[in-house]
Write a protein that binds this DNA or RNA. Sequence first.
DNA 1: TGATTTTCTTAACTGAGGTCAATGAAATTA
DNA 2: TAATTTCATTGACCTCAGTTAAGAAAATCA
Lengths: 193, 193
Amino acid sequence: MNVEKVVHFVRQFVPLEESILESMLPILSQVELKKNEIWQAEGVMGTSMGFINKGIMRLYFTDDGEEFTQEFYAENEFASNFISYVKKQPSKTAIQALEPCELIVMQLDDLQNLYDEVPALDRFGRLYAEQMLIGMYDKMNAILGETPEQRYYKLLDSKPDIFSRVKQYYIAQYLGIRPESLSRIRKRHMESS
Amino acid sequence: MNVEKVVHFVRQFVPLEESILESMLPILSQVELKKNEIWQAEGVMGTSMGFINKGIMRLYFTDDGEEFTQEFYAENEFASNFISYVKKQPSKTAIQALEPCELIVMQLDDLQNLYDEVPALDRFGRLYAEQMLIGMYDKMNAILGETPEQRYYKLLDSKPDIFSRVKQYYIAQYLGIRPESLSRIRKRHMESS
DNA sequence: TGATTTTCTTAACTGAGGTCAATGAAATTA
DNA sequence: TAATTTCATTGACCTCAGTTAAGAAAATCA
């Protein structure tokens, strides 16, 4: 199991000594997903976080038969139904692999149990939660104050590879518009550059 | 100082014995605000939570000379620049009284210091943070998946008194539209009922 | 209260995204 | 590889919010 990158990721938040690795290994497991496979289904409790070693995933929910993609997760990011875990309620969102994926999976309950032994992990948990809050906050402001076109350019700027790796209509869902509108925005963009 | 309602509010989250009141009193203070007065300015660190005994407030930010109202807080709610406190960064948002207000103010640092002595308060802090996260999450989904008109009716349903207490253009900011558009939505609403 | 400023409404126009339908391109599968 | 399905693009048309400007209503203040 290739845990190098997870450790590196966690170390961005908190210092982690080598010895701590040993206490972490038992709560980690590796998971392989096929393209389009649902990793976490709707209606199920969110119990784990998946660090993406390879591949790309999306978090989405379904309302009135229509899907809304909320977030894309790619290499070196954690994908999770965190809201469900926090609420202790079955998740309204699902997580799907959009490419063949390789995940390092961490059980959230196991992580919480480790908090007493390894304070550094406790801190990581809190910082991660806060980071999520901030991310959601920024995103909300973007949706409130920006046009779909502005959001398109922002996404193009921050995650340019998304456009070649993910189907257009998932991106359209993410931007809050119809695939046809995304096509038109792209066309306008081509013409002006 | 009238702290009855704050205590009642906190008790909705966690059981609080009478004796705990004594430890809380020193970190509480009462603040009166005039109409339109800015309680927490932009660019300042978020350091406190204000429980509203009377009045109504708004949380907003300014971008490119334009204001965006993110939330209204009325009686029996806490108003705070919580994101700033969590980020430990000067706030991008400001909080303004939209009516003469009476607040019970709690210093967040003081509250954190109390956590060691009163575990029930620690729990309150966490639950409050989680509640904020959930609220923000729900709101984001509403903005992504609903039209301004749907959001208008939702607000009308959940906080009908807002419309008589708050200026239309603040509500328009909150809904993510122009005051003119809100007028038109209201007109449509009148005609159809 | 009366005067002045601020806010709200209305109208005409523009533009961007939604909808529907058809076609072309790409990915899947046999 | 060919056949089939899925996805992306385009066009025509429609709807609704943005913009600008004007006037009405309401709130503020002297």
